[in-house]
Structure formats: C-alpha cells, structure tokens
Nucleic acid binder design. Structure first.
Lengths: 208, 208
DNA sequence: ATTATAAACGACATTAATGTCATTTTACAA
DNA sequence: TTGTAAAATGACATTAATGTCGTTTATAAT
C-alpha cells in the first residue's frame, strides 16, 4: 500500500494494539511473541514491524493509555464527592466491584511485566515512574481530607497509601489465582475490602 | 562415570538444585534456560538432564523443600508461644524482619512462577495445592486463639487469613520493586506491618 | 490516466534453546 | 586387576523466534 493519511496510520496502530492487548491477556506478556501478534492481526510480519518493533513497545503504549484514563477517573472521583471519605468509599466500592467481576484483565499482564522487569534496569525505571504517578493520585484523595480536617491520620499518609495499593494489588492476584477454580467468595473479596475499610476508618480517625 | 551410590546421586541433585536456585533468583524463572543451568553447574548437558529434564521440575523440588521447612517453622511457632496473640505477633515480626532485609529471595521467583502459571492448567493445580497448604497453617494460628476464647473474630477466619497472606505477599512485591532504588523506609515496611497489626487487633478483638 | 510514494508483503538468514544419543569415562564389585 | 553398569560427555538435529530487505501493491496527487 501507499502513502496514506495520519488518521489511517493511527487507526492501524489502534487495530494492532487492540489485538496485542487481547493476546497479552490470553497468553500472558512474556509468552507472547511478535509472530503471535502478526498472525492474529492478519497483517504480514513487515506490516506490523512498520508500527511496532517489539511486544514491549506495544505493552507500554497500552499501559500509558490506560493510565491516562485512570488519571481522569481519579480527578472526577474527587470532584464528584462531597466529602473525602465519600471519595475513599467510592474507591473501595470500585475496587470491590472490579475484583468481583469475572475474567482476566490487563492488570495481571501489568503485574507479570512488573515482576519480569525487576532485573531489567530500563524496564524498572519505566515502572518506577508509573508507580509514583499512581501513588500521587491516591495521595490526593487522602490529602484532601486531611486539609479539611476530616481525617486525622495516625500513620504517615504515604504509608497509608501504600497499604491501600498493596491490598488492592494483592486482591487482584488472589482473585486471579481463584479464576476458574474458586469463586470470589472463596477469596473473600468483599470481606477483604471490608478489612481495608476497617483499617482506614481507624487510621484516618474519620469523623462520624 | 559409573554406577554409584544413592548418596552420590542425592548429593549431585542437591548441587544442581542449589545452582538452579541461585540462577532463578538472579535471572528470574522464565528467563532461565536449561543451558544457563548446565553452564553454571559446570556439568555437561546430558549430565544435568540425567537428573532433571526441565527448569519446572527443578523449581518444584526447591519449592517443596522450602515448604517442608515452613511447615516446621509454623509448628514450632505455635508450640513456643504461650498465647495465640504472641504467636501472631511473632509472625508479624518475622514478616517485618524478612521484608526489611536486603536482596531478592526465592519468594519473588515463586511469585513469578505463579503469575506465569495462571494459564497453564497443570501448573495452576500444583500451586493451588500449595496455597491451600499454606492457608491451613496460617489457619491453625488463629483457630488456636478462637478455641481458647482469646480471639473473638468479627470476620470469617478464612477471610482474615487471606488478608494476612495478601498483605504479606504484597509487601514482598513492594519491597522488591524498591530494591536498589528505594529503601525499606520508602516502602514503609514497618508501618504496613503495623497497619496489619492494627487491623488484626481490631478484627480479632484481642483481650488486653 | 499516470506516477511517485510508502504501506504491506513474505521469504530468508540468524540466533538461541531443546532433547537425544552414540561414545567415553570411571566408580565399584568380583 | 579387570569387567561392567551406568554416569557423564558433547555434538547434532530440530524447532521457534527475531529482524531485515527486496519486491509488490494500493493510494493520493498531478
């Protein structure tokens, strides 16, 4: 084919990324080869390589786009909540809903990529930035309540944030382990979110 | 070489497993090839294949041995504690110590294997057994206190167990993420263990 | 229509890992 | 000391993935 518009190329990129995303979820990141993606897109080897030259590149594009959406979601969450606790509550509910839902999402793929990146300097620094970014947005949520006097934290705010992230991530993993063999009840998704809620109420000394 | 004693073979097996363990920790499980291990042992290809025919097989041997040790540790923990809370407290302290220590241990390798196993039926069922085994031992710890009336749990015991495992595992991951770039302070290891302690005291209604 | 452009193609050389097996070596028993 | 079972060797065939590049083909501009 020939010289085409920017939109055309953009569309093709999206097509490839969407296919890649599905395969990453189905097979895992490390087990996915360029050949797999080439075959799934129905394009030729050279055709795909014109846009992306590695699965790593694809992964980052997908992740970066996801993160943009998370960012928006966080901001709207804060904006649409009348109290800081309400925002936290909504976050907990969202987490619960997500973990109760079936199927494996892109989150596991990110986890996998993360684990396999610990020894690869270049990848690790990419993830570090991403981690700090997410941390920052969680932070806003709590900081908000502290400033209005709604929260009186007994632990450093950063420690509280990390604990929230820790539990949320762990829940994702446990939910996945149980995928196809145990249901969400066996992993006690709701109870674990409740456990996090108990802790947060206590540590933030939320006014009743 | 020639027909040799059982001990000789056992010793050789141990040698190979020890080398494999080191390489797994250094490079990660999925990135380690049989060739890597062959080279590191100094044996020949066929020599190693005589004992193990895949990295998967090696991984399971190492893991099973670790689990035997964990089992012993758990039992001695219960035996050497005068109250159930004391045992829980010791477990928390042990977790904190471990997470504060430097270096990457075999735990990450197990995590990595776990993630990569989600889509492989045979691997997943192996891990499921292992998970139930660990869960059972954690369970004894709490069950003990319930029977003596020391604990009056507000949530299902299994949910509490899972939360403990969840946080411990998450802490391992976060500690690893920070390896070589952030220290344990930045991951708030101690504070997160303290958060878990706060939750446990509350949910178990520990008598003072 | 015609032409220039570059998107898409697909064959190919290269690299790396796997599992096997005929051969060599050596510990142990007789 | 010698015979032998089997441990250990290392070369090799096989398989699978990667990145490249000369060729083909479709589009948009003229």
């Amino acid at each position: 084919m020939p010289k085409v518009s920017e939109e055309y190329k953009e569309k093709r990129k999206e097509e490839i990324l969407e296919t890649a995303r599905e395969i990453f979820i189905k097979q895992g990141f490390e087990k996915t080869t360029m050949t797999d993606i080439v075959e799934a897109t129905g394009l030729s080897r050279g055709g795909v390589y014109q846009y992306f030259s590695s699965t790593d590149e694809m992964f980052r594009h997908i992740t970066d786009r996801n993160d943009q959406e998370s960012k928006k979601w966080f901001l709207s969450l804060i904006e649409n909540s009348s109290t800081a606790w309400e925002a936290v509550e909504k976050l907990l509910q969202e987490t619960e809903q997500d973990r109760l839902s079936d199927g494996i999402g892109f989150g596991v793929v990110q986890f996998e990529y993360f684990l396999n990146s610990l020894r690869v300097e270049e990848r690790a620094s990419y993830l570090m930035k991403r981690f700090q970014f997410l941390r920052e947005y969680f932070s806003k949520l709590i900081q908000n309540g502290v400033e209005t006097g709604e929260f009186k934290p007994l632990q450093p705010i950063d420690a509280i944030i990390l604990f929230i992230m820790n539990v949320s991530d762990g829940l994702l993993l446990y939910r996945l382990m149980s995928f196809n063999r145990l249901g969400p009840k066996e992993v006690y998704v709701s109870e674990q979110v409740e456990a996090l809620r108990m802790y947060l109420k206590a540590v933030l000394q939320v006014e009743q």
